Amino acid sequence: MSCKSSESSVALRGQSAGCEPAFEDHYMVLQDIGAGAFTQVKLARHLLTGVEVVVKILAKGASNFPFLSEGDTMVGLDHPNVIHLFQVMETENYIHLIMEHAGGGQRWDLILETDGMQEEDSHKMFRQNLGALQYCHQKSTVHLDLKPENMVVDARP
């Protein structure tokens, strides 16, 4: 599951700031999706399979130590309403969490675009959220920042 790079170069390439050559040997960054205090989030394509993935890039550093264990936490989770972690790629300066791409955007955007949600759809999503939270809590995992901006929508029907 983890792939520790022997790549010693830390020079970053153009548009892919935060991605080191060891990462770019396997993935092509398609676009930036977002950024947080300690992370960059990018849409990428696996070069061998062509599968689109989301890559969360964490810069290593003492100030973000609590976030560096996110991969260890996610690796044990397997639930239909929790994003799957495919791979953790660690290089000298970064940790790349390669995750499932749901494809439907953020829940917050869906709410804004549709002028709210129908009650039936809202109930369905709420039940999915509760099921995922219950599962995570049973696995001793707690999400510390639950909000619609941090939830994604599956593009599959």
Rank of each mutant, 00 (worst) to 15 (best):
C19D: 09
P21A: 12
D121S: 09
M117I: 10
M28P: 01
I33F: 13
K139N: 11
T91L: 07
I95M: 08
T91S: 15
R156D: 08
E20W: 03
G131P: 00
F126E: 03
S63T: 10
H137Y: 06
D109M: 06
Q106P: 12
A59P: 08
P157R: 09
I111P: 00
A132C: 05
T73K: 04
Y27E: 02
M99Y: 08
D154H: 08
S2Q: 10
C136L: 08
D109F: 03
Q128N: 05
D25L: 04
H101Q: 10
V82R: 01
K42Q: 12
S69W: 05
A11T: 11
S9E: 14
K56I: 04
Q128G: 05
Q87E: 15
V82D: 01
S9Q: 08
G103S: 07
S69E: 01
E120W: 12
V82Y: 00
G36H: 01
F67L: 13
E24P: 09
H143M: 09
V41H: 02
D25W: 11
G105R: 03
A59D: 04
V152N: 02
E24Q: 04
M74S: 11
I111C: 04
A37L: 14
L30E: 13
N64M: 11
V51R: 14
A37C: 03
V142W: 13
H26W: 08
H26M: 10
D121T: 11
R107N: 02
T91Q: 07
W108H: 08
Q40M: 05
E20A: 10
L68H: 03
S140Y: 15
S8E: 15
L68C: 02
F65W: 03
A37Y: 07
E113P: 04
M99V: 02
M28Y: 10
E52Y: 04
V10F: 15
A62E: 14
D78S: 14
D145Y: 05
S2E: 04
L112T: 07
G34T: 01
M74E: 04
C3Q: 09
F86Y: 15
M117S: 11
N64I: 08
P157T: 12
V142K: 02
D154C: 09
G131M: 00
M1N: 06
V152W: 12
E70T: 13
H96V: 00
K56S: 03
N129H: 07
E119Q: 10
E7Q: 07
P66M: 02
L12T: 15
E52D: 10
M89L: 13
G76T: 10
G104N: 15
E52F: 04
L77A: 03
P80D: 12
G103W: 10
M74D: 05
L43Q: 07
G116P: 01
E92R: 15
P21G: 02
L112Q: 04
D154K: 06
Q138P: 00
Q134C: 04
T39D: 01
I83G: 06
Y135Q: 01
R13E: 12
A102S: 06
S8I: 03
I57Y: 02
K42I: 09
C19G: 03
Y94T: 08
P21I: 13
L77S: 11
S69G: 02
A37G: 01
Q118C: 06
Q106Y: 12
